[in-house]
């Protein structure tokens, strides 16, 4: 199990389009991947799950993974979030 804490850097937070980008990165890996906010923990391969998190800009989320490729998986998903999804930053 690997964990990384990242801050959602874009203004609008993880809305539908960023959620789709996260899921697209996550499904590339065999590991189970989760996103966790103080309120909830969801499967990073589920677009509905990621959206339900409602992680607004500035929120800290924990990316975690368990499986053979857990290290690269966590880094890849965290990188997508840190990129700000090509949107306006806070």
């Amino acid at each position: 199990m690997v964990e990384l804490v990242v801050t959602v850097p874009n203004k609008l937070g993880i809305h539908a389009r960023p959620a789709a980008m996260i899921v697209r990165a996550a499904v590339e890996f065999d590991s189970e991947i989760w996103l966790e906010s103080p309120a909830d923990k969801v499967n990073a391969k589920s677009i509905m799950g990621v959206m339900t998190l409602a992680a607004s800009g500035g929120t800290s989320v924990t990316v975690s993974a368990a499986g053979d490729d857990e290290t690269t998986a966590v880094e890849a998903v965290a990188d997508v979030i840190k990129s700000g999804f090509g949107e306006e930053m806070i």
Binding site: L12, A16, R17, A54, S56
Partner: peptide
């Protein structure tokens, strides 16, 4: 419907903040 859902989500995040 995707746009409507997304608007609701963005509004919810705004309230949460």
């Amino acid at each position: 419907s995707a746009e409507r859902l997304n608007r609701k989500l963005i509004a919810r995040m705004g309230r949460k903040r």
